Structures are given as structure tokens and as C-alpha cells.
Computed example of a mutant assay.
Amino acid sequence: MLLEYIHKLPIGFSEVLYADKKYGLTRTDFNKGKSIKIYAEELGGTNFISLNYYVTSSKEFLKPCEMPEEKVIHFLKNLSVLPLG
């Protein structure tokens, strides 16, 4: 389910809007998309989101980096990707 939200994010750098604040977000895929790293930093602020997501033949794993899982899930479900330019 979370993978659907992750796949909506462009690979590489993008800007997203979350809670009326702009974030610089980087999505990096490894291992043919079986391992995904996302790091987002609030532009002009102090908040950040960091996670790894793993897909195996039997399960999917969300591994937030030093933050609650709920914070990461809320971010992924409620962000909007902004057009670059």
C-alpha cells in the first residue's frame, strides 16, 4: 500500500508540499527497485523525513530513520509533488 505512494514520487530530486511547507525530496532506488531510500528536508525549516523501504518476495518493510513510523506514513500519504521550474 505505501509502495503506491512511493512510486508516485519521481526518482531523483523533486520539491513537494506537505502541511503548507515546501520540502526538497530525494528518492533513490537500489536493487532494481527492491530497496528505496527517501530523504526530504523542509526548505527554510528544521523538519525532515528519512526512510528506507524494502520489497522482498514475501513482504514489504518500512524502516524510518530515527523517527516514528506514523510520521513517515502521514508524510507519504499527504504530500503533493510540485512541478520543477
Rank of each mutant, 00 (worst) to 15 (best):
E15Q: 14
V55T: 14
E60Q: 06
E66L: 09
H7A: 00
K8I: 01
P68K: 15
L79F: 06
R27I: 04
T26K: 10
K37W: 09
S14G: 07
E41D: 03
S35D: 10
G85R: 05
E66K: 12
S80L: 07
L43Q: 12
I36P: 00
I49L: 13
G85D: 02
V55M: 11
L2E: 07
F61R: 05
P10G: 02
K21L: 11
T26M: 12
V55E: 11
I6V: 14
Y18S: 06
I38A: 02
E42S: 00
L43G: 00
N47L: 07
L51W: 11
M67R: 10
S35P: 03
S35Q: 09
S57Y: 12
S58A: 13
L84T: 05
Y23W: 08
G45W: 04
L2I: 12
K22L: 08
L2C: 05
K71Y: 05
R27N: 09
M1G: 11
H74I: 03
N31F: 06
K22R: 15
N31C: 11
G24L: 12
T28P: 00
K63G: 07
I6Q: 02
E66V: 05
F30I: 09
K32R: 10
F48E: 09
Y54M: 12
Y39S: 06
A19F: 04
Y5C: 07
V72M: 00
E70T: 04
Y18N: 05
F61D: 06
M1S: 15
C65R: 12
L3M: 09
P83G: 05
E60M: 02
E69K: 13
I73A: 01
F75Y: 14
T28A: 11
L43I: 15
L17G: 11
D29H: 03
L9R: 04
P83C: 10
K8S: 04
M1H: 10
V81W: 02
E69H: 07
L9S: 02
I36T: 06
R27L: 14
S35R: 12
K37E: 11
Y53L: 11
L79V: 00
G85V: 03
K34R: 15
G24C: 07
K8E: 02
K22T: 15
V81K: 06
P64T: 13
L82Y: 11
F30A: 10
F30L: 10
N31G: 04
L62M: 10
K59W: 06
H74G: 02
L25I: 13
P64A: 13
L17W: 05
Y39G: 01
L62R: 07
K8W: 01
K71C: 02
H7V: 01
